[in-house]
């Protein structure tokens, strides 16, 4: 079916006179004028505004939302470029409609994400001899190298401007840096002590072919993981702004010291200077301190993907040891048995958040209103999702002491809104639930033992045959085993085709990745585990989400997401193959399963999964006296028959 765009009022239309702007669009004229003044002062003809912070975070704090402030577009991914006469945002298909709802006609929307497409546009807009500015603390070394390569021989100069021009334009309206306490995780929620982790990293450095004397950690989850420390600097992410410089004889932690309690300072051994003592230095001193360390007889290991050009440029090239990801990033990706147990335990608690949606399915539309009103407190009427933070509220109210709120803004969408992979309702833009439509909810929690992320799609009426996608999901999980032989070192990229196969067979696809790693009370998207070309090979002990979907523009959206652990497969000849063990325990909507599409093996897999859900989650629901949820579980995990 063709998307029904004609006459839509929820998105901008810049080709009419006057242009049509929805109420959700931001007026960015003043912001752009302010930025252009600063560009003029710095003699720049174009300025690049990336979507990240100085740690290459995927999700960022309020004071780092520069791209959102200048353009109005709030999606998590997308680069803006401003010239003296034009402005454009590049983003991927998850956010195209959102960008058309949020941006005014000052902005062009570019439906691509590669650096080469950005540079092609800049070269067309910036005359020869022009200067293109960027903040060196907002580009990774990798990204800078790509931009630099693209600009070579172009007669335009890429200029590193250490003062951020958007910050200057933003002025006093820019939110301040967070300052809440940084705390140590209790022992029972960690895989090993920080001292054990530091020793392991030092052994890695010692045995490295280049034997670096120092390791610089820039990603926020690297430092949080290494020291078993957490805070809440970024919404939904328990991190704190920091860097670590770990050497063979010292540990330097760059952070705002006033955020530690006396107890945490003792935990870190900050009152000594031996190799197992943590020396605290101010967060803002990192560049100078790395520069000073690099002046000695040293070599420094950095991960190119998460270190900014701003730090890279102060280390002499002959003293650099580089690899794509730091050893901490690689160690964190493989969970030890204790971390595996913790992450699994966190997923067992998820079912109650998903069962109400299925109550609606069973009990009809009128009751939906009632259930929503009673369950989600502030629900004024029958609208989709968590507008005003209802799902989030529910998670915050969890009385388990180790619950720490949601792990991302809940995606809750019905009908055509669900065709936007990352739609979240707002006061201005929401939709009444209907039994004739599909409803998608993607929600996750931050618990002290693990981060969760599950998506389910339901239909409360009669879905069409076109809307049933069960087969693709089963294929991506149950039937797949892959060689773990070093000869092939099979990456997720090669396994991913199985997840898309059922869609590809009929000429369909989905425009986002198939999965991502997930942390122990860390990132909900914990890279570099996943199914993409820049992800590392899957290995035993890694966790990944598996989330195929399908999005029919202007009509509906489907996504089914589970988290799975990579384990050894039980094959006739054991030891050489890996497979997935699903650790998300929420049944799928039976309404969306066409049993006739499933092979006997797929059916057997699904019924085995349902049996596991009963065994794992049933006792937990009974322990917590969640009897309604328990009855729902029993009903929705009845074995399916061919």
């Amino acid at each position: 079916p063709q998307p029904g765009y004609l006459g839509r009022e929820d998105v901008r239309n810049c080709s009419t006179n006057p242009p049509h702007l929805p109420v959700t669009a931001a007026n960015t004229t003043i912001q752009l004028a302010a930025l252009r003044q600063w560009m003029q002062a710095w003699n720049l003809t174009a300025y690049i505004v990336p979507d990240t912070d100085a740690h290459m975070s995927e999700y960022i704090g309020k004071h780092d939302e520069r791209r959102a402030w200048i353009s109005g577009f709030t999606g998590s991914a997308g680069t803006a470029v401003v010239t003296m006469g034009k402005a454009a945002v590049w983003t991927d298909s998850r956010y195209w409609t959102q960008a058309d709802r949020q941006m005014d006609c000052n902005w062009e929307l570019k439906k691509e994400v590669s650096i080469s497409s950005i540079v092609t546009w800049i070269l067309a807009e910036v005359p020869a001899g022009g200067h293109v500015g960027f903040d060196p603390f907002l580009l990774s070394v990798d990204s800078w190298e790509n931009y630099n390569l693209e600009f070579q021989d172009s007669n335009r100069r890429l200029v590193s401007v250490p003062t951020n021009l958007v910050d200057l334009a933003w002025g006093s309206d820019r939110p301040p840096m967070p300052s809440q306490p940084i705390y140590a995780l209790p022992k029972e929620f960690t895989g090993s002590t920080w001292q054990e982790k530091v020793s392991t990293v030092r052994s890695y450095m010692k045995n490295h072919a280049m034997a670096p004397t120092g390791l610089l950690l820039s990603a926020l989850d690297e430092t949080a993981w290494l020291f078993n420390l957490r805070s809440g600097d970024i919404p939904y992410n328990p991190f704190f702004y920091s860097y670590t410089l770990l050497t063979d004889s010292s540990i330097r932690l760059f952070v705002n010291k006033s955020r530690f309690s006396l107890e945490t300072l003792q935990y870190l051994n900050t009152s000594c200077s031996s190799p197992m003592c943590v020396q605290l230095e101010d967060y803002s001193q990192v560049r100078d301190s790395v520069k000073a360390y690099a002046s000695g007889n040293v070599t420094i290991l950095i991960g190119l993907s998460y270190t900014t050009y701003g730090l890279y440029e102060v280390i002499p090239k002959e003293k650099l040891v580089t690899q794509e990801y730091s050893p901490v990033m690689l160690m964190k990706a493989v969970k030890n048995s204790r971390e595996q147990a913790l992450l699994k335990a966190s997923h067992i608690r998820e079912l109650p958040f998903f069962s109400p949606t299925s109550k609606m399915e069973a009990e009809g539309q009128e009751l939906v209103t009632m259930i929503y009103s009673s369950l989600y407190l502030s629900a004024p009427s029958m609208v989709t999702g968590q507008s005003w933070g209802r799902w989030g509220l529910e998670r915050q109210m969890e009385n388990e002491s180790f619950s720490s709120g949601p792990s991302f803004e809940t995606i809750s969408a019905s009908g055509l809104n669900a065709a936007l992979a990352h739609y979240s309702p707002t006061k201005d833009l929401h939709r009444k639930l209907s039994s004739d439509e599909m409803y998608l909810v993607d929600s996750g929690g931050q618990y002290w033992d693990g981060t969760t992320d599950i998506t389910r799609t339901v239909h409360w009426g009669t879905p069409t045959a076109f809307q049933k996608v069960r087969k693709a999901k089963v294929d991506s999980l149950g039937s797949i085993q892959w060689s773990r032989s070093n000869l092939f070192s099979l990456s997720g990229r090669m396994v991913e085709a199985f997840a898309r196969r059922a869609l590809w067979e009929v000429g369909l696809n989905y425009g986002h990745g198939t999965g991502h790693g997930i942390g122990n009370f860390l990132c909900v998207h914990e890279w570099p585990v996943g199914f993409q070309s820049n992800n590392i090979a899957m290995a035993k002990g890694m966790f990944t989400s598996i989330e195929p979907g399908y999005y029919q523009d202007g009509e509906f959206g489907i996504r089914l997401e589970d988290v799975a652990l990579v384990v050894e497969a039980k094959t006739k000849h054991p030891g050489a193959y890996l497979t997935f063990e699903v650790v998300s325990f929420v049944p799928y909507d039976r309404n969306l399963i066409d049993v006739s599409l499933l092979s006997p093996e797929q059916l057997q897999y699904l019924n085995q999964y349902y049996q596991t859900i009963r065994e794992k989650v049933g006792p937990e629901l009974q322990r917590r006296q969640l009897l309604e949820e328990f009855a729902w579980l029993e009903q929705h995990t009845q074995p399916l028959s061919a």
Binding site: A421, H512, G515, G530
Partner: peptide, 24 residues
């Protein structure tokens, strides 16, 4: 939560590396 797909540039790099490692 759905992840972004990587850009073509990095895919080329990965494929080139894969081919190099297979042929070495």
């Amino acid at each position: 939560m759905a992840p972004i797909t990587t850009s073509l540039t990095s895919m080329w790099v990965a494929f080139t590396l894969a081919i190099l490692s297979w042929s070495s």
